[in-house]
Amino acid sequence: MSIVVYIAVMAIVTYLIRMLPLTLFRSKIKSKFLRSFLKYIPYTVLSAMTFPAIFYSTGNVITATVGTVAALITAFFGLPLIVVAAAAAGTALIAGLFIL
């Protein structure tokens, strides 16, 4: 299948998700379950995407684990997104220099 078709499907689905509520809805969602579900979804999506994939993200489980720990620590202290991301990549790179 052409890559263009894949990209088009991604883009169209994502656009509709954004466009329909902003354009059509004017009132609040009534279902408490649905509202709660939507509140948790961002966190569960990111968690499911991150674990365990992050441990394979550098092609080496050891350097990835070092980076993951660095990310967890910097995130725990509430540091900005860029700092956490850079700490993860930086420590993974340094770990790679030592063991590879």
Partner: peptide, 15 residues
């Protein structure tokens, strides 16, 4: 290879 972790680092910073 090390940069492959950037995006996940951002996810961790969010959650």
């Amino acid at each position: 290879a090390a940069m492959g972790i950037l995006l996940y680092g951002m996810f961790i910073a969010i959650i």
